[in-house]
Every structure is written in C-alpha cells, then in structure tokens.
Design a protein around this nucleic acid. Sequence first.
DNA 1: TATTATCTGATTGTTAACAATCCGTGTTAT
DNA 2: ATAACACGGATTGTTAACAATCAGATAATA
Lengths: 240, 240
Amino acid sequence: MFLARDRWLCNLSTMEKPLETIIVDSILDAIADQRLHAGTKLGEQALSDLFGCNRAHVRRALGTLTAYHVVDHLPNRGAYVATPTPQDARDVFQARRAIETVICRNAVRQATSEDIAALRVHLAQEALARGGGDRSAAVRLSRGFHLLLGRIGRNPVLLRYLEELTMRSSLIIGLYATGHGTLCADDEHTRITDAIEARDMDAAQDLLDQHLRHIEAGIRFGDDAPVTGALSMALRRDAR
Amino acid sequence: MFLARDRWLCNLSTMEKPLETIIVDSILDAIADQRLHAGTKLGEQALSDLFGCNRAHVRRALGTLTAYHVVDHLPNRGAYVATPTPQDARDVFQARRAIETVICRNAVRQATSEDIAALRVHLAQEALARGGGDRSAAVRLSRGFHLLLGRIGRNPVLLRYLEELTMRSSLIIGLYATGHGTLCADDEHTRITDAIEARDMDAAQDLLDQHLRHIEAGIRFGDDAPVTGALSMALRRDAR
DNA sequence: TATTATCTGATTGTTAACAATCCGTGTTAT
DNA sequence: ATAACACGGATTGTTAACAATCAGATAATA
C-alpha cells in the first residue's frame, strides 16, 4: 500500500523518545511527501498496529493533527486527511504572506554567515532534486527552504504558524496543483537568498511576497470541487 | 456526500457544546479575566471534580490548551498556566502586528454597515467598563475589540491565530503590566473604527500597528523575573 | 424494481482499574 | 545540625474492557 510501512517503522526506530510526536511527524511527513492523499481515512486501529502502540496514543496524535487543521475529525466517524477548499487555500496563502514577510525581514536582520551558508546548501539540494525529477522531494525541499528561513527569523511564534501553514500548503498543492509551474521556482529561492545576504530588507520581503503570489497563482482554484480528494474519498474503502 | 450535510444540520438544531470545549473556554475565560494567574497548577482531579466529568475529558482539554501555548505541560508533573518570558512577549506582539495589520486591511475592504455598527456598540461597552473602573472587564472587552475586528476580516486562519495571540497577550499583560496605561486606550480603538468606516486602508493599518506598539511599550519587560507568576512559579521546581 | 427497515460487523467514544512517577515528610547516620 | 535516604500519599500516565454509534449488507414490502 502507499503508506510505505517501511519508512514509518524506520522513523519509529530512529527516534525513540516521544511516542506521540513520532506518530504526528510521520503522518505529517507522509502528507508533505504526498504519500497520504487528502481524504484518506486514518483509522485508529490501523495506526495502532502500524506503530505497535496503544490506541490512546494514536488518538492523541490525531487530536494534535486536528488542531493543526491538517486532518478533519468527524465525531463517531473517524479522522481523515483534510480536504482544503479553494477558500481555505486563499486564506492560507494570505496568512503566509502576512507571516513570511515579517519572518523574512527578521531573517535579513539576524542572519549569520552560517545561516546563509545553510541556505546555500539547501539551494544546492533543491537544484539536485529538481534535476533528478523527484517531484515529492522537490516539494519537501521547497517547504524546507521556507522553514529554514523561518528558523533564521528566530521568532518561535511565527515559526510555529509557518510550520502549520506550509503543511496545509503541501496538502493544497497536492490537491489543486496543475501539472507544471506550481512548485517553488528554484531561482526565486536563490534570489531571496541573495537579497538576504545583501541585507536588502525591502527587496527580500518583496521577492518573498511575489514568490508566494506566484505559487498561489499556479494553483487552479476558484472552481468547484477538489479533484484528488473526491476520488480518494470515494475509494477510501480499499485504504484499510 | 449528503451525510456530512445531515451532521451539519444536526449540529445546527441541537446547538449542544462538546464537553471538552466547555472546559477549555472556561479556563481560557478565567485566564483572560486574570482570575487564574500564571504559574498556578491545573490538577486533573480538581478539574474533573469542578466540571463533574471524567478525567480523560480534562486531560484532552489540557492538551488543547497546551497546543494553544497558554498552559505548560510538564511530564509526570502536571499542567500549569503558562508563564511567558519577556522574549515570548516580544515574539507574540511582533506576530500580532504581522497578523492584525492584514486583518485590518481585510476589515476595511469587507466591513458591512452592520459590522461597523457592531464595532460602535462594542466601543460603547468599552467606554462603560472603563468608566466603571472594572479592570478585568476592560481587559476582556479590549481583547473583544480585536477579536471582533478579526471576525470582520473574514479569514478564519488569521482569526484563529489572533485568538491564540490575544489570549497569550492577556497572560502577558497580567504578568508584566505596570499599573496604568497598559490597557488599550479607548480612543485608539475609536480612531481605528473611524478609519475603517472611512475605508482608509492605510490609515487603519497604521493606527492598528501603532496601537499594538503602544500596548507593548506599556509593558515593563527587559527586566528579569515576572511579577505575579514569579512566586508561584518559583515555589515549585522550575521548568527550564 | 425500487424503497424502506432491520441486522451485523466494525469503528469510535467512555470509563475505570492498574502502573509509574513525583513531592513532601520523617528517619538515620555522619 | 545537616545531609542523605527511604517511605507514604497523591498525582499523572497507560492499558484494556465496555458501551455507543456508524456504514454496509440483507431482507421485506409495495
């Protein structure tokens, strides 16, 4: 099945301390990598078996994922990977612009040379993945760039919101992405990094704002029902 | 699927609140009203008795409050009302400026005449409470103004973040407030409302930004230990 | 045949009992 | 007298059994 049991168990073996966190992060990663599609059911028993743990732990993990608005919880019916509406998408991207522009200014103000080096390394990885044609890796790394920027900004409050918003963005892109052009253009990330290194606050902010608008523009909403979600919702019977 | 619609209509007709929500809101209100001080323990048994319910419900409620960052959860030790540090305060207020300025622009764009009427009503209530000298009511209503603005902005994502941030702000004000001037000045709310009614987007945004800076300036951080919470926090083995 | 009613297997929600951990107190030894 | 240790009460964390609810399937009726 697409759940890639191997990966999950691998995660479980690697980090051993907080059990609930492992479950949450695993599901989050699976969604970001688009191995988990919008609308698929997350049964408690199935997850308990997968992670070899109690059902209560799974239940709490699903609770925090619901708080993140990345899964929808229907009472007496179970938890499903959320299916954002086009309006949700617009709201999420507006929130991203509001938050990331400030994060970007913080980054320009506080970035150390190590931070910029880390950004350069990340850009190289992105280029590599893009060259290899690995779409899911490209999506994950693209998100990683924004998160790295968020960490450089050094405002934990904004960083936490950014984590949630980029997660929901991954879902949205997986749902509404038109075949091409929806991913973060590599050169835009590069130019943002250049502006940060040049300590040009206004330029960096403006580049990031435009970057987010480009991503949003590459999404085909405004229409009716989501594409992938409806299908997987209908097919979700075989997911058990 | 029409099943979802059934569920929705059912919710609309019954209007019954989930038990967990009641607990969360009660604690949140108590914190906003400063009847619950920073650092006070929230025992599971005590809360179960108070609300006449199972301990599991209390546990989930405390979980969501922890997700809101309004209570700190120490493993094997219990849940305590959070004690924000001065740095937390700065981060929270920067996040508020980032989010509320966008909310404000949305409000200017989308406010109906009913919305503005609601704002005027709220301003009257604020003036009343301020005249009566009821400090906790003033704090609550001041938060209410910002939340009302958030609802008028009609972006649920930003509204949710605003709810959390204003909640944390209440805690911060309760901790660090100097005796006077820390509350939202009534006339600032009024001028913001005027700008919204005049559809002056830039003016409204700027007034709100300055308003938030004034609130932040009225807080005496930069020093070391918090005032109210320090005692109750210091008595127990402190967290980090 | 189409529609409604009922039944059943499966899944979620709740509760209480059990286990692990921590804090305060009292004892003991140096 | 002080510090280390150990014990008891209380609180949190975990687990499994039980109850409630839902989706799908089967049967019944017009």
